[in-house]
Design a protein around this nucleic acid. Structure first.
Lengths: 133, 133
DNA sequence: GTGACTGCAAACGGTTTGCACCTCA
DNA sequence: TGAGGTGCAAACCGTTTGCAGTCAC
């Protein structure tokens, strides 16, 4: 993967944000420090980032792609009114579910991932959302 | 909700299928018995069905809308190679997760739903997929 | 130097919309 | 008869693509 100027700027914008940015958020952000960048480049770059395991793609109810720079296993809280995604990590919960499922028989299906997502709404958009373990 | 011919035909097509049809699957299907139907009508009808709680919308990795005529609480297995969705119902699992989560404190977030999805691949597309409780 | 990357603009695919006409209740 | 549903075509919006020019290695 070549370290082009564009890729570096996009990567920095990504690393800054914890809120799972969309392509157009990244595009607007990156334009500030690199005004001549094209939208297609952001799309293509994110595609390569996904292929190289730099980020994960997160499909969202609103239809847009979002990206997750957090590559550790974790779960999501999804806000149905703003479309924002919040990470939470609870290995006890993950283990609980995975162990339960491993005791079940799945016929004709090979599991790659068990995804657990809490949907709902943020009450006060100015305050932080927290999951207390 | 008016019982128009179009809506009845669409509803029947829906009830037939367990595999969470897309709009264009429904459109093709419905055209067989109602050739003059328009794609826009299928879109608008599904929208009213969702509003009236007749079906649920299921957002899919492939970007297309799918619909679920099964209104009972249940979970999904998602096949990453075909995009097909299979239902499974395991109340023990659901209760396990919900009880675990209710012991946690979620700050500034109102939960509407906990979604548990098993991603993976169907091994033999001609055989049924089964989750054994 | 060359293969990979960028930027542009045009195309794409799923979905939505505006509007004249029609139809169920 | 009137509120609301239908069909058509055009618009929309996020995303992808083809290609000529450019850049990192």
């Amino acid at each position: 993967m070549k370290a082009t100027h564009q890729r570096i700027v996009i990567f920095k914008a990504l690393a800054d944000s914890t809120l799972h940015p969309t392509i157009d958020w990244l595009f607007e952000r990156v334009k500030e420090s690199y005004p001549s960048i094209s939208l297609a480049t952001v799309y293509k770059t994110m595609e390569t980032f996904v292929e190289h395991g730099v980020v994960k793609r997160v499909k969202c109810e609103d239809g847009k792609n979002r990206f997750d720079a957090n590559m550790e296993p974790h779960n999501h809280m999804y806000c149905e009114s703003t479309g924002r995604i919040f990470d939470f990590k609870d290995m006890d919960l993950q283990t609980l579910v995975e162990e339960y499922l491993s005791s079940k028989q799945l016929e004709n299906f090979e599991v790659s991932e068990v995804q657990l997502q809490i949907n709902g709404r943020v009450l006060d958009p100015d305050k932080p959302v927290q999951y207390k373990i």
